[in-house]
């Protein structure tokens, strides 16, 4: 029974990796069930998952801001490029 549980249950680490995988591809039915079972039972993973969702939103926001950010080459950087073109 213990062995069966071990096969059926994910560790926190496996669960975190599957959470990331889930954002990039569809999980298999078995993976999906295992992930849901783990999430229901593990407080630490639940806590990490809350943090991860916020990190996702915040990273997205930062990158969107960077997209709109207009940066300028400094005089020194421009000179370096001109040197390479000589």
């Amino acid at each position: 029974m213990k062995g069966l549980m071990k096969i059926a249950m994910l560790s926190c680490k496996q669960s975190s990796i599957l959470s990331e995988k889930q954002e990039l591809v569809n999980l298999s039915i078995v993976e999906s069930i295992k992930l849901k079972m783990h999430a229901k039972m593990c407080t630490a993973s639940k806590s990490l998952s809350i943090d991860n969702k916020l990190i996702d939103q915040a990273v997205l926001k930062i990158l969107e801001q960077r997209k709109e950010q207009n940066m300028s080459l400094t005089a020194a950087q421009r000179e370096k490029i001109l040197q390479a073109l000589r």
Binding site: S11, A44, S47
Partner: peptide, 15 residues
């Protein structure tokens, strides 16, 4: 994680 891949310490969410 500990050697079984279980969180070594339960942490409250940052927020």
């Amino acid at each position: 994680y500990d050697s079984n891949g279980i969180f070594a310490k339960v942490q409250d969410p940052l927020w």
